[in-house]
């Protein structure tokens, strides 16, 4: 098995050579429910890291804490060494439910982050057009979200996040509201995009196959309370035909290994 298991158990991990996001001792309670217990994690620059776990493991909560959308009860988040507790221009979020404005065209939706920053209209629309092409929506700029399929809507959400030129992209189960065929296509596109864009991706998912397929690193979270149980680096060669990855032995072995680890948490 070539998948490298970096560590087991919740012991703090030493920072890898170049990590852009550092999570230290983050805990979160919802009332008396302990959602996250003292999470320590580093996210390497330019890599795609997945937060994977069964429902209730706090993976979305952790992502939203990194995004500054939820405040942690304890612990710190540092981006490039600077502590943050609110949203900032170096991070951009892609929402599970797309969060597109139904009254705005694709173009305006994609340019919205720049519009909020006060960039002038021609300039921001040029940038937006570039990223609309980049995510494969060329020619759809004047459409409204309700005219698009779920997969296309999420591409709009991704283009919006790309266009603000943040270093870290936070994706909260971006494909969960997208149908199976579109999801496969979208995953392939995401792998391609990641090589082009040189950005750091943090990706929340509950699909083991999805995590293994697209991630450089997978952080396994266990539920109640949410803790880091394992960090896995699947060594999969993504330069080959995507169809072959799904039949690749290492791919299948890694999926199986993670499933064996997670099985105990499934009722």
């Amino acid at each position: 098995m070539r998948a490298t298991v970096l560590r087991n158990g919740p012991s703090p991990v030493s920072a890898s050579a170049d990590s852009i996001v550092e999570v230290r001792g983050v805990s979160k309670y919802y009332g008396s429910v302990e959602a996250l217990r003292s999470i320590d994690l580093d996210f390497p620059r330019g890599k795609l890291t997945s937060l994977l776990g069964p429902s209730g493991c706090g993976k979305t909560t952790l992502l939203k804490i990194i995004a500054g959308l939820i405040t942690a009860d304890a612990g710190t988040i540092a981006i490039d060494g600077k502590y943050v507790s609110t949203p900032g221009p170096e991070r951009a979020f892609v929402f599970q439910d797309f969060a597109l404005m139904p009254w705005a065209t694709v173009l305006r939706n994609v340019a919205f982050g720049l519009e909020l920053r006060g960039m002038d209209k021609t300039k921001r629309e040029n940038i937006a057009r570039h990223y609309i092409d980049e995510v494969g929506l060329a020619g759809f700029g004047d459409k409204y979200p309700h005219e698009l399929s779920g997969g296309m809507r999420q591409r709009v959400g991704l283009a919006r996040a790309l266009s603000v030129d943040a270093d870290v992209l936070l994706l909260d189960e971006p494909f969960s509201a997208v149908d199976e065929q579109n999801r496969r296509k979208f995953q392939e596109d995401l792998i391609r995009l990641r090589t082009n864009q040189n950005k750091t991706f943090i990706f929340v998912t509950h699909s083991i196959e999805e995590a293994v397929y697209i991630s450089d690193r997978i952080v396994l979270l266990s539920p109640r309370p949410g803790r880091v149980s394992q960090v896995i680096e699947p060594q999969i060669d993504r330069s080959v035909d995507p169809e072959r990855i799904h039949r690749d032995k290492h791919y299948l072995d890694t999926v199986e290994e993670i499933w064996q680890g997670l099985k105990q948490y499934v009722e």
Binding site: P87, F112, E115, L116
Partner: peptide, 27 residues
């Protein structure tokens, strides 16, 4: 709610939230 969160994550100010999200969504 999710549009409000979206606006916050893209650094919208209070005034921008009202003018660009709340009023259009409520219209």
């Amino acid at each position: 709610e999710s549009l409000l969160v979206m606006c916050r994550s893209f650094l919208g100010t209070r005034w921008q939230t009202v003018a660009k999200i709340i009023l259009p969504d409520a219209s």
